[in-house]
């Protein structure tokens, strides 16, 4: 465990908690893509099935359980508890355009043709693109609440830190996982445009709004 990996995990955790608290405190999930949150719940579920087959560490097990628990709680808040505030009219990204190709790709390009391994690969590929419905929603409405942009920032920061972690692990441990690295690079690139807006607007105290 290096510092980039640890801060990456904590940044991921911060993103998840920020989103949960935002919805809980404001009693509203306006501006949040429920579709992205369902995709993230699918990502965690398919990736952490190894909770049942392998024990790595107390840290590893607890973080996995927290991630899964929080992501299901978020989906519950959006689709049940605060359903009346859910902005479904703007959450119109067609998720089958992500899930079907990603499912096909995980069958074709994987480390090992076994059920758990294919599901793990599926989760890696799906995570890379799971934020697209949220970004699509923001581009459609042309704006995002500042707290939502903090959520996106920490989510993107997590992946960027993981990239540095992989460079570190390659040099010091000779470790690399091509599937995770390629998907991680794609995922980080998707956040670049957002990072630019975050730094030039949100950090200067302005609301994130896109030109009409």
């Amino acid at each position: 465990m290096n510092i980039f990996r640890l801060t990456g995990d904590l940044s991921h955790l911060a993103a998840i908690i920020i989103l949960l608290l935002k919805i809980w405190k404001s009693r509203s999930c306006a501006g949040i893509s429920g579709k992205s949150q369902i995709l993230f719940a699918m990502v965690f579920t398919t990736r952490y099935l190894d909770l049942l087959t392998a024990y790595i560490s107390l840290y590893n097990t607890s973080m996995k359980i927290i991630y899964i628990g929080c992501s299901y709680a978020t989906v519950y808040l959006i689709y049940a508890k605060f359903k009346a505030t859910y902005d479904g009219n703007h959450d119109t990204f067609r998720v089958e355009f992500l899930v079907v190709p990603v499912g096909g790709l995980s069958f074709l390009v994987n480390h090992d043709f076994s059920p758990l391994e294919i599901l793990w690969t599926f989760s890696i590929y799906l995570e890379a693109v799971a934020i697209l419905p949220q970004l699509f929603m923001i581009s459609k409405t042309g704006e995002a609440e500042t707290i939502t942009t903090h959520y996106l920032f920490f989510l993107g920061l997590y992946r960027a830190l993981y990239l540095i972690n992989w460079v570190w692990r390659f040099y010091f441990e000779g470790f690399f996982d091509m599937i995770a690295i390629v998907a991680g690079v794609v995922q980080t690139i998707l956040y670049c445009d957002f990072f630019y807006l975050y730094v030039t607007k949100v950090l200067k105290g302005k609301k994130l709004s896109l030109p009409a």
């Binding site: 990996r5 995990d9 991921h12 190894d50 392998a54 790595i56 560490s57 590893n60 973080m63 996995k64 991630y67 480390h111 793990w120 993981y162 972690n165 000779g174 470790f175 690399f176 996982d177 091509m178 995770a180």
Partner: peptide, 10 residues
Amino acid sequence: CHRTKVKDEL
């Protein structure tokens, strides 16, 4: 392709 047997990352 090189990979770890145990997936220790989240």
